[in-house]
Computed example of a mutant assay.
Amino acid sequence: MRIRRVVTTREGGASAAPYDSFNLGDHVGDAPEAVAANRARLARELGLAPDRLVWMEQVHGRTAAIVDGPRAEPVEATDALVAAEPGLAVIALVADCVPLLLGDPQAGVVAAVHAGRVGARIGVVPAALAAMREAGADLSRIEGLLGPSVCGECYEVPQAMQNDVEKHLPGSACRTRKGTPGLDLRAGLWRQLADAGVGKIGIDPRCTNEERSLFSHRREGTTGRLAAITWLEP
């Protein structure tokens, strides 16, 4: 079964500054009609009906939900969505956090995960993997893509915070380009996925803080959200 993965940029949408222009987040203060237009365009570009896009109310937690059909509203208080129905796209919204797209093409199970510092620290990725296994996936067959996020050279944090995250997500501690304590969440998550037995892991190397075609809360404060989407082709 073929798995599709798409990561959007900020270009080509209907939103005005500071959300310009392809903002897909409906919780950041953007005009609702602009977000609706952008989401409608996303569905058209993906070749899916708008009701086949499943969104979530992200809360920086570790809850993973299995969805088996369209949802009229975002899945509440969830940071990972798992689906095994062809043509049902699950979506994570980010603007510096790590979007993780997972899929087992043999079992026909996909997942979209929102893994920010808090969620990654408390185990949102293991929760997503457990939900995928519940839906029939095998860890050795899962393929993962760690999408664009703030890089370790840009993500400066206090030393105590770095120590705490490293304790819970080994491999994430790094130094910024200024030589100060930093976090490379993608490095820590890559190690976590590998240790769990995930078969293939790829990384989109783009840094949201450095790449102007991507939204970055760290760079801009009030801004939009890009989407990482995955689904099984019918």
Rank of each mutant, 00 (worst) to 15 (best):
L93W: 02
V6A: 11
V125K: 02
D20Q: 05
P170M: 04
Q162H: 11
T176R: 01
R71C: 15
F22C: 05
D51W: 07
E233M: 11
M1Q: 14
H114C: 05
A34L: 08
E233F: 12
E11D: 14
M56D: 14
G182T: 11
M56N: 13
D30R: 00
S172Q: 05
P99R: 13
R117W: 06
E73M: 04
I201A: 10
W231H: 12
R117A: 08
L183H: 15
G103A: 12
W231L: 02
V198K: 01
L185G: 05
K200N: 12
L93P: 01
E76I: 15
P205T: 09
V94H: 06
M161Y: 13
A187Q: 01
G116M: 07
A72S: 07
E166M: 08
E57Q: 08
D184T: 01
P50W: 09
V7L: 12
G87V: 12
C97E: 03
S213Y: 03
A37Q: 07
N209D: 06
E73R: 14
G29T: 00
G144Y: 06
V28L: 00
G199K: 05
D68C: 07
E33M: 00
E153H: 07
P74W: 08
R2Q: 14
I3Q: 03
G108P: 04
H114F: 10
A135Y: 06
P158Y: 04
A92W: 01
G87S: 09
L189P: 10
G116P: 04
E33A: 00
L93T: 00
G224Y: 01
V198T: 07
